[in-house]
Design a protein around this nucleic acid. Structure first.
Lengths: 116, 116
DNA sequence: CTGTATCCTGTAGGATACTG
DNA sequence: CAGTATCCTACAGGATACAG
């Protein structure tokens, strides 16, 4: 599975469409799931990997770096041995949660209707 | 700009994550914007092109076909000359609107904060 | 007006292997 | 544990041209 967001010649964040502005943040494969996982509680790298089973380390790493660069998540290295790293949502990240929840809500509803 | 959704070996709609289920519907470049445009009122092909200025006819067409196949939009050919076609959201499509609105809301908020 | 058919390209992201 | 480095491929989607 994968979700990509590609920039085109025209900015995703068109002046007239606020959707692009937000999609820039939650675009990219697994991004909504990452935020969803972090919404409940801060998590470590390996925990996120487990949350999203088939995600590759590379992609998870990439996503986390992107989100960190965008100010959506924070990365905190715990001085333990072996080292562990905690990722958490920033305030900006929390603003995205309602949107993710709306998406998850629809998904949940669809799955219920879909059969089981 | 562009938004892609790619299927991987693992179903996007994982049993444990409802997000994938919903993202399957609004994945793909421009898909959220298409639904957003149709949310207000049914629209014709060329109107949608105008709404999303830089979208190519091919992609818009592709998106609309996908959404139609998924039961998100309906396509109605009006027997006029020249022919015009009206696209509208189905009931399923309307279920997606709150999620899109949540996304748009965040986007709008971010843009306001972002400067102007 | 409403598309469809081609062609072409970048790039996202999966696999795998390796590091501190 | 928490990544990074490569390599590789599929495929999304942009342009363009044409069609009913």
């Amino acid at each position: 599975m994968a979700l990509q967001v590609r920039k085109s010649k025209v900015a995703l964040a068109d002046e007239r469409c606020p959707i692009g502005t937000c999609m820039e943040l939650l675009g990219g494969a697994w991004t909504p799931q990452v935020i969803w996982s972090l919404a409940a509680t801060p998590r470590r790298f390996s925990e996120l990997q487990i949350d999203m089973k088939p995600i590759s380390a590379k992609v998870l790493s990439t996503r986390l770096r992107e989100l960190e660069a965008k100010g959506v998540v924070t990365r905190a290295v715990m001085p333990t041995s072996p080292p562990s790293v905690e990722y958490a949502l920033t305030e900006l990240g929390r603003e995205l949660v309602p949107a993710i929840e709306a998406i998850a809500h629809v998904g949940f509803k669809l799955k219920r209707q879909a059969g089981r």
